[in-house]
Amino acid sequence: MDAITFAVQLLNGVQYGLVLFLVASGLTLVFGILGVINLAHGAFYMLGAYLAWFIASITGSFALALVGALAISFLLGIALEEVFVKRMIGRDHLAQVLLSFGLILVIDEVRQILFGKDVHSVAAPEWLQGSFKLTEVLSYPIYRVALCVACLILAGVIFYVIQKTRLGMIIRAGAENRDMTRALGIPFDVVNRYVFAGGIALAALGGILVAPVSTVFPGMGDGMLILSFVVVVLGGIGSVAGAAIGALLIGLTDTFGKVFFPQVSSILIYVLMAGVLLWRPNGLLGKS
C-alpha cells in the first residue's frame, strides 16, 4: 500500500468515524440525560435519509432536503417525547426496550407506506460534485471532504454547547445527578424534551449527510444502531468525548479491517469491543 492509497483509506476511516460520532453522540446524550435506552435511534437515521431523498426528488435541492428533513425529524422527536418517552423516564429498561422496538416496527411500516422499500440515491449539491485528482488513477470526491468538514464543525458546536453554555451546564449536571438537578429548580422536563429531539435530529442528520455518498435503503438504520451502540459502549454512556474517541476507533478499525483482513472485517469491531469490556467495562471515559 503506497502513501496515497493509505491516505485515502485514512480519510475514508475518519469520515466514517465522524458520521458515526454524529449519530452516536445523539444516542449517548439521550442515555446520559434521560436515562432512556432508545433502540429506535437507527430508525431515525434511516428516516432522515428517506426524507432527504423524498424532498430532494421533489424540489431538486439538497439544501432544502437537508433543512426540511432535519426540521421534520426534530418536530417528530418533540412529539414522541411528549407522547411516549416522557412516560418512560424512570421505568425499567425492559419497558424502554419494548417501547422503542414497537416504534421501530411503526416507523419502518410508515416509511414503507409513504416511500416504499426501493433503494435510492441522492445527488450532492452541484458545487460539491466532482472530485480532487490525486494521481493518474486516484481521485477523491469533493463531497466526502465537505462531509468531513461539516461533521468536524458540528462536533465543535456540540462540544461548545456542552462545555460553554448554560444549556450545556444543565446537561452535564443532569448526566451527573438527575434528581439533584431537578431539586435545584432546573426545568428538567423542558431540557429532556429538547435533548431527546436533538438526539433524534442528530441521528437523522447523519442519515441526511451520508445519503449522497451511500445508498438510501430500508435496512440502513439497523446497521447504524448496532455501530452506535458499540461506540457508546467503547466511549462510556453519556460521554460525548468518549463517543468521539469510540467513533473514530470504529471508523478506522472497520475501514482498515476491510483493506487488510477482508475475511473477518465485520467481526473486528466486536473484538475491539470485547477488548475494551475486559479492560474497562464502563467504557474508555465512563464513570466506574
Binding site: F84, L98, G102, L103, L105, V106, D108, E109
Partner: peptide
C-alpha cells in the same frame, strides 16, 4: 404497523 402499535 398494527403489531408495533400493539407492542407500544
Amino acid at each position: 404497523l398494527i403489531n408495533g402499535l400493539l407492542i407500544i
